[in-house]
Write a protein that binds this DNA or RNA. Structure first.
Lengths: 345, 345
DNA sequence: TTGAAAGCGTTACCAT
DNA sequence: ATGGTAACGCTTTCAA
């Protein structure tokens, strides 16, 4: 090997040969046709008629080379993507929510979108919006874990997003609002307890970080109910923390607990029983989310059932917003909450 | 304000104007420099020295235009991406798993990867591999929900993937194997029950689709234990199904149940109690995953604790595989399972 | 210190 | 029925 004008390309220093990725040009060469023809065949272009022998040759060449088109090049050329960006934080919100997320993802795939879940924990609205915009998503569906400003929405739209949707308690200017006000949940719980004759209600606020977006509105919702006196109580998702709270319950002078959700409720109810408090005689306990496990304890747990939109419904909403971004930015009320009385209240 | 050569920009007419996305050329024009300079400034190129005034001009122009670089164009030029592709199915596997997934995502972001979660439910290995390859991920981390063949791995590598990692019970040729054999779980459970003097064990197999990847190895693991007779029992995640199973339990002649995981175990245990069977006297019940809720029922649920790798650990493994794909494809044993005896056995 | 230009992989128009 | 070619937005030599 003699030295040519080009330096002997060092074979990617540390590792061996990264073996070049086959391109449509490679396929064309092997099939003995042009790149355009390859494109036509592989995309089943209907505007152009290609002879059957040629089609087969192209297909075989592609197969032999293991050719797979390059999504980035394709969307660069197309001028747009089919990416729906789904910001997420690391918060384990519970089974209800993750089931919903999975459904949504599945439904969007069915509509031919590529779902990119982008971990955005710790980013500010500005940083997040910029990072998301780099991917040129056709739509952004923020589940409310990041607080978006009108300016952030503008950034995303300038980057080509045809729709920005936010799910949460309040609307953001410029974005479609999918309203899901967790305050409803707190309100339904407190109303139910008041109906049952309870007056002084302790509302559990999880110590776990990141749940504030849910727990604060739930607390406020409870506060909004007439006839009830509300006391906020911090508690962690652990037996120790629940035991500690149950221990000092007597000194609080409360007659009911609304425990954020069923899991915290079960924890607390068990702790109550362990210190000799009777449920519901001494203290009523109410959960939320209507998880199956809430029915396994005795007494059965009263709860607030939340009707989440189906993933399919939401996917359709996204699709509609993408297809018709002209339509005035709309608000949808997506959440309904209803008390489910069982035996703990 | 008089009219200039440019027409008075219509204030975003209803639909037709998708308002062009600003490019680096626009920034260059506004700042009065070349595109190259823009790139240097925005990427803090160290090889080139740019005057401070120029830098400021460029930054201000970018700011004013709301310019955000185009990730696809960038990676097309660079010849590689920082995408780690994470195939997912729609199965709600439980809190343990989703917490882990979130951790992993967060850790990968910290390593400057972009995590793309790709819903692959219903795709065959071939279809999935092709779809993933289009994104030119630098790494694919398959959690085992899709069965990958050696050929699929080859497809991905030809498309530029520097690492393909599979998490699951068995290794795939060409891929790094992160072994997590769920059979361990079943084995630990059965061993524990045998130690407690049980001989005929019913193993619950969830009817829910998609759990087979976990439930089958757990069942097989139980079968592998000497001294126990195993009977597979199908059951759905519902009170009705559990009740039905409890109803005919007497006719089965079994003295213990290993219930797939803690949630199924709790469901079944409650159903046992409702039909008058005593736990653990009449029947021992064992769960898996060591969920907190398992401690809330009485008797407390014996379980198998699984030590999942931390998201951070796994992210580091991915990073290492990407940086050094030359290193022989390795196997890592990532899972440890240990029985946690409580009161239900 | 800055600018001109090539090229990454695709697709769509316009010739042939 | 096919092929040539330009263009998408960006980075990066190379030259000035």
């Amino acid at each position: 090997m003699s030295q040519s004008s080009k330096p002997p390309k060092p074979p990617t220093p540390p590792s061996p040969s990264p073996a070049p990725v086959p391109t449509s040009a490679d396929v064309a060469r092997l099939a003995g046709v042009s790149r355009a023809t390859v494109s036509y065949v592989l995309n089943n272009a209907e505007a152009v008629r290609i002879s059957e022998p040629t089609r087969r040759k192209v297909r075989e060449a592609a197969e032999e080379l293991g050719y797979v088109p390059h999504a980035a090049a394709r969307s660069l050329r197309a001028g747009h993507t089919r990416i729906v960006l789904l910001p997420t934080s690391h918060v384990p919100i519970g089974p209800l929510y993750s089931t919903f997320l999975n459904e949504l993802q599945w439904a969007l795939r069915g509509l031919d979108y590529t779902v990119v879940q982008y971990g955005s924990l710790g980013l500010t609205g500005d940083e997040a919006a910029r990072a998301w915009a780099e991917l040129r998503p056709v739509a952004v569906l923020s589940l409310g874990e990041i607080a978006l400003s009108a300016h952030n929405v503008a950034t995303l739209k300038r980057a080509g997003a045809r729709a920005v949707l936010t799910m949460g308690p309040q609307a953001v200017p410029g974005a479609h609002a999918l309203l899901m006000d967790q305050a409803e949940v707190g309100a339904r719980a407190a109303e139910h307890l008041v109906e049952r004759g309870r007056r002084r209600i302790g509302v559990v606020v999880p110590e776990e970080e990141g749940l504030g977006l849910f727990s604060t509105p739930r607390l406020e919702g409870a506060r909004s109910v007439a006839g009830a006196e509300i006391v906020a109580l911090r508690m962690a998702y652990s037996e120790e923390s629940a035991a500690e709270l149950a221990q000092r319950w007597g000194s609080l002078g409360l007659d009911a607990a609304f425990a954020y959700n069923d899991e915290y409720a079960m924890l607390l109810m068990r702790a109550f029983q362990d210190v000799g408090l009777r449920v519901p005689e001494d203290v009523a306990v109410m959960g939320a989310d209507d998880l199956l496990i809430g029915r396994l304890l005795r007494p059965r747990l009263s709860t607030v059932q939340i009707e989440m939109p189906t993933g399919e419904r939401l996917a359709a909403l996204v699709d509609e917003a993408v297809r018709e971004p002209a339509a005035a930015v709309r608000r949808h009320d997506l959440m309904a909450a209803v008390a489910v009385p069982r035996d703990s209240t």
